[in-house]
Design a protein around this nucleic acid. Sequence first.
RNA 1: GCCCUCAUCGUCUAGCGGCUAGGACAGUAGAUUCUCAUUCUAUAAACCGGGGUUCGAUUCCCCGUGAGGGCACCA
Length: 478
Amino acid sequence: MVQLISSLPYKSMSQVRVRFAPSPTGFFHIGSARTALFNWLYARHTGGKFILRIEDTDQARNSEEFLRLIYDSLSWLGMDWDEGPNADGVGERGDCGPYRQSQRADIYQQYLQQLLGAGRAYEKDGAIWFRMLGERYQVYDDHRKKEVEKVKAAPVLIDDRIRGKVERAEDEDFVIFRSDGNPVFHFVNVVDDITMKISHIIRGEDHLSNTSKHVRLYEGFGVTPPVFAHIPLILKSPEMGQGKMSKRDKGALIEEYRQRYFLPEAIVNYLSLLGWNPGAGDDREKLAIAEIVKLFDLPAVNQSNAKFDGKKLAHMNMLYLLELPADRFLAQAREYFQKQATGATVLANEAYFREIMLLAHPKIKGLEELSTYTAYFFSEEFLIDAKVKEKVMAKGAPKTRLAELTAVVPAMDFSTDATVEEAIKQLATEKALGFGDYQAVARLAVTGTNAGPSITSIFRVLGKERVIARLQRFLAEA
RNA sequence: GCCCUCAUCGUCUAGCGGCUAGGACAGUAGAUUCUCAUUCUAUAAACCGGGGUUCGAUUCCCCGUGAGGGCACCA
């Protein structure tokens, strides 16, 4: 088929322009983040532009709060956009605006007039329909339980960068403006992508079936369609159920991970591996973002859907947490405790706080564990884990060991871990026992648990007075 | 019902005609550090089924089956 139009607005531009076009009608979820990420990666990989467009035509479901969440989530994950609304919600940048569909009504009118003028659109039942080209016939539709008008036409051929060649029949007129005067998704999507000079449309596979409509619209406007790349969907993990992941699923929201103090770079790394990998014998999974940008390309994207695995995300998060520089860890920990009920107490003494956080850093698997992991450092009202107690008290003669230890603590040198360790070892040697015979019960008495930093560090940081008080209290109660 | 896409360990995946089918998470068993976590070692675990093509198919083709998506005056 020969196209009439010669003025292809971006034909001469070789620059890649991709967009992420969310609608602010709900929480920002993993699937959206991954779609945004693949677009962002492609833009950064090719040196192109990443454009943020807000599809806020659904006035009933839109909210400023959700709009804000889009900006915040993208920024938090480190996906900066070259064009679109500013992150603070004030103004926008780029030459192809406005970037919010709610402000583009006149553009849609203009493009509608073009279709009307060319005879490719008509009014029926108060709505405006896009006219397909070809011979018409009536047929009964089982699904919709009614007679519908079909059009004989060659199928649309989509040359997808990820799927290959996909053929699909598009054989019905469809609504482009509702009877309430608002344009529908397919129409605004295509018009925006034309006017924003989008070169590659990278989106979820759920849009693959819509693409034939979009191609016909491009043709209707006399514009060569951009390159399409339909990425696999993220499905629910087996515990979540069946089907594609939606914002209602537990563990599906970016906000949830943010509130749990996951590290954004870990989330981005995990997401990048859902449907993509460096390939060709490259087994690496933990990849710096710069490395991913360097390696990412569309043909390497998988074609099959992937199930979300929260455990693997948590593992990735731990890897990033472990190698976080001390100052960044402390900053994160500070931010975390500012939101906790115990925050004021915990943050009261900077040096003490710092010391404990650095003890906890190599031991925890996620920042969210920080509060319970360090609770006994900040309060004398810590809980004694009943199960641990049962286990510890069942072995050997823990009460005797504790009494022996309590007797020598007042004379101990608490200045360093080494001096504490030496003193306990000396006691053990005198009694012909091991360090472990004192360690377990001392830990239980002083922290109420069996998990934590070395007992020597705990003693030193808590200080002699508190250690003695705790040991005596435990002895009295046990 | 019609249309589209996909198919390797439980999960994410490598593989692009010839491999002992590799890695990671989760699992199991050990080792190590005073506990815990980390770490390390070992172990178990997969080519959906049936036809072709080929000297040879996990790999290419077809048919099933299964999984997912789309069929709106939602986006």
